[in-house]
Design a protein around this nucleic acid. Structure first.
Lengths: 323, 323
DNA sequence: GGAAAGACCGCACACGTTTTCCGTGACTGA
DNA sequence: TCAGTCACGGAAAACGTGTGCGGTCTTTCC
């Protein structure tokens, strides 16, 4: 299997040095004169030399590849996180390989074996839910994103859901709203419970648990209207969109009669809603960037321990501010 | 950098053979007695041996990795395609690395350099639009998915948009609808033009071009109603959802007064719409599977040439059939 | 019994890079 | 002038696996 690529020996020959010296020159290691370094660099540039990752990996142990292991088949969460991860890693010439476990433990095991065999430098583990998850068992640097590891000694980066929910409340209260209802997803989902708890703490009101769907948002609206609220905070943008739809059908004005907030800042929901939703952006790209940074540090030998909570960001739109 | 992993020499030692023999036994190459092969296999299983991908890549040239190069930052199209690709490849122990170019040619070039340096076995190129795209210049097997290469000598797999659109028409005609209008996206989008052309060919009606948004769907509904249609086919599920919303606001029943069809079968739109949309499923996973199969064949030395059009599939729901 | 054929396996090298170790030459200070 | 130090760069050994070639041992046939 001959590949026509230019090898480091070619560069070395052109520069009039040995292969080892060329390697040192290109990697800024060893002690070489500035002149030699520059000469090798020129030769490499002239030949368009790109080091073969296979040889490099075998020799140095580093493979300059990290994996993003996710259970989020839809990509709704993992894609933004991956963008953040890549922002950080591509600067260091690292590649990211995406592994979708499809929530299948067997598939996850199979991926992990493969990743260890490939010698990836590290792994970012993420998911579609925020429930803490059991750690993966690999002899590699690992960082958990969005869903923390149940092992507190691991490094995890998550979103501060409580603060995000609290931000919607203070925003609404700042607008003079006092009778605030809360409609959210299943009570056994951590993200629903966490957000609802933050809301309840501020308001002493009873949250309505259901599903993460527009339909539930519409249904719950009818229930919640009996309390004559002047604002409804929702656990997701889908629910909020359903709420807005139902309110419009009932002839209630949003936000004049009732203000509505969502959660997630999912563009396809938050922007398509009528009116567009004030909501909480999860800052998933930040999450990815932070996770990648921690992973790099861990790879470099200074691992981080414990859970890091990143702030979410309130995004205000017409559903609370009006036109 | 000592890795504690078990090497093939360990397996060979346990089986009482040389490393080379162990390699042949595990890869079913060379000529060895069945007994020896079995003994080596047992030893490998006992030690939990997994061949180191780095050494294997360097030696054989094969890296058992393929890349999915995409311009679709949202993942709306690339994620399903990737699932299909992985379905086919993971059976052969190949890993898939996802590269999101974010529509940036520089980033694409940078990724390609990196991929070639890594020695990936092949590349699947895809995107968020169906416009044919200029081919990438790499000395590797490449298959284009969703968006064909402008070079007819390349292998491309795309969706038969015309047939998909025609399927909605025959479906509606089969239901007795005769005055069918068409609302779709920008005229300069290939997927809009292709679908509109198929519709126009069947109906001799003038399509309405606009944007891929619900808002445009709502606006266009008012325009199109002057023609007193008994069905409206849309170029996307987003548009169709907007149409349904507007019709309901106007007191028109879907599908009793007017049937509506979408396109894409994007769950978050097609299922959340009221009523749920009859639409055309792009079969993106099939697309991915087919692309991966072609890529494997190309890697094996028998490349395919030309464009392969895969059929889309009509999915019927309440927006044409009623409850 | 000898030779040819075949089955089977080990040896040694290749793959491309990094890295350790060591040698050479120059320079410094006494 | 000589020893000691330092800067620089070359040789060679890894890293782990795949594979061509040749050697050995058994079998078979004359």
């Amino acid at each position: 299997m001959k590949r026509p690529g230019v090898r480091i020996t070619d560069v070395a020959a052109l520069a009039g040095v040995s292969a080892g010296t060329a390697s040192k020159a290109l990697n800024n290691t060893g002690q070489l004169s500035q002149e030699t370094r520059a000469r090798v660099r020129r030769a490499a540039a002239q030949l368009g030399f790109t080091p073969d990752a296979r040889g490099r990996a075998l020799s140095s142990g580093r493979t300059y590849t990290v994996a993003l292991l996710t259970t989020d088949s839809s990509g709704r969460f993992s894609i933004p996180i991956m963008r953040g991860v890549e922002d950080v890693l591509s600067a260091g010439e690292l590649a990211t390989i995406l592994c979708d476990t499809r929530d299948d433990p067997l598939r996850e095991q199979s991926y992990l074996r493969s990743l260890v065999a490939r010698g990836v430098d590290g792994i970012v583990v993420t998911g579609r839910r925020t429930e803490p998850r059991p750690p993966i068992d690999v002899p590699l640097p690992v960082v958990y994103a969005l869903a923390a590891s149940t092992n507190p000694a691991d490094a995890s980066v998550i979103v501060d859901d409580a603060a995000g929910a609290a931000a919607t409340i203070t925003h609404l209260q700042g607008l003079g709203r006092t009778r605030i209802a809360h409609i959210t997803g299943p009570a056994n989902h951590r993200s629903a419970a966490e957000r609802a708890e933050a809301v309840a703490a501020a308001l002493c009101t009873e949250p309505l648990f259901g599903e993460w769907t527009e339909r539930w948002g519409r249904q719950a609206t009818d229930l919640v209207l009996r309390q004559h609220p002047d604002a409804i905070t929702c656990g997701s943008d889908q629910i909020a969109r359903g709420v807005c739809d139902r309110l419009r059908e009932l002839g209630r004005s949003v936000p004049d009669d009732i203000a509505v907030t969502g959660y997630d800042n999912w563009p396809v929901m938050a922007l398509a809603s009528r009116p567009p939703l004030t909501t909480v952006d999860l800052r998933l790209e930040d999450l990815g960037r932070r996770a990648a940074t921690l992973l790099l540090e861990s790879i470099a030998g200074t691992p981080h321990h414990g859970v890091l909570e990143l702030p979410a960001q309130l995004v205000t739109r017409e559903s609370t501010l009006g036109a």
